[in-house]
């Protein structure tokens, strides 16, 4: 196979990573943007999404039906759990930026260890509802001008395409929610000026609980989508959290478009560098990018400098 098809294959793998990462980072960015809470437990909500997907899919009898049940139910369960964590923990520490970091570290370990005790240390898969291999064409310049051919090994599964499509749909929905609906307006007003929002009848604490639940639900959805590709494991939240932070810092904390751009950048570079060089180099480059952004544009690509 020549270089071109390899690159396309790597880019497609990268796009799947980018899609999952964008969902997760959007949740992290939303929570930070509105609540000014750095949610260190965000990766564990992703892990819970994956682990509960295994549990729920099993309870619903497995197969395509089990997966659909998990896709619908798990983000709601994890979201509800996050709302409970918000009301019982974050609200009690007054949403103070430093104390919420310590509090969410606590939540991280509680979720991780409870999962270890209940679910065990094994990695377990969930079957994808559909998983056809789709061969992809490549253009070749032959004697008679350009023509299409199907290189051996250049393919993607229908499930991976579904993951990309689902992420696009959910993120578009999130965009509409934030910019076109009343609840989005309330969330943005709370983000811009908490005190004035209260002076205009916005129940800020309820908005916070909702946002924390929504953020966790997005991470859980990313977790459900990834289980058929990567197995569910109680330690899977760590790497995902790190990558989400990288994406959010590069994109600009609190900026949804910035998060998307950064997720694409990191996802694609991760896919391409992992295929052509090594996954370690991909992580090195991502970390280097964060360092460069922090030095030359501390507010991130799309973030606003503090006024």
């Amino acid at each position: 196979m020549e270089f071109g098809p390899y690159l396309m294959l790597a880019a497609l793998e990268g796009a799947v990573t980018a899609a999952v990462l964008a969902l997760m980072a959007a949740g992290l960015s939303l929570v930070f943007g509105v609540m000014r809470v750095v949610n260190v437990a965000h990766g564990e909500f992703y892990m819970l999404g994956a682990v509960l997907a295994f549990v729920v899919a099993g309870m619903a009898g497995g197969g395509a039906l089990g997966f659909v049940a998990a896709l619908v139910a798990v983000p709601l369960i994890v979201g509800a759990l996050a709302v409970a964590a918000d009301v019982t923990v974050l609200k009690r520490v007054g949403y103070d930026p430093e104390r919420t970091i310590v509090a969410t570290i606590g939540i991280l370990y509680i979720l991780q260890q409870v999962t270890l005790m209940g679910y065990g240390p094994d990695a377990r898969p969930v079957a994808a509802p559909f998983n056809q291999r789709i061969a992809l064409p490549w253009v070749e310049w032959g004697a008679g001008g350009p023509s299409l051919y199907w290189p051996w090994g250049l393919s993607i599964t229908s499930y991976k395409l579904f993951v990309i499509g689902a992420a696009v749909v959910v993120l578009a929905g999130l965009w509409v929610l934030m910019t076109r609906t009343r609840i989005g307006l309330v969330m943005r007003a709370t983000q811009l000026d908490r005190e004035t929002a209260q002076a205009f009848g916005i129940p800020v604490e309820r908005v916070y609980a909702l946002v924390f639940g929504l953020g966790a639900g997005l991470a859980a959805l990313a977790g459900v989508l990834i289980v058929p590709i990567q197995q569910a494991h109680y330690l899977m939240g760590g790497d995902a959290l790190l990558l989400s932070f990288i994406v959010v810092i590069i994109g600009g904390l609190g900026s949804l478009p910035g998060t998307l751009i950064a997720a694409l950048l990191i996802g694609l570079s991760d896919g391409i560098l992992s295929v052509f060089f090594s996954p370690t180099l991909a992580k090195i480059v991502a970390t280097l990018l964060v360092a460069l952004v922090l030095v030359f544009r501390p507010q991130g690509l799309m973030g606003k400098a503090p006024r």
Binding site: L185, R188, A197
Partner: peptide, 22 residues
């Protein structure tokens, strides 16, 4: 409030909408 405290990134219509929603 003192210093106006508008929702700076929202439009005029959205600022008024928040007043109406109260």
């Amino acid at each position: 409030p003192q210093g106006r405290r508008l929702f700076a990134e929202l439009t005029v219509a959205q600022n008024l909408e928040i007043g109406l929603m109260t």
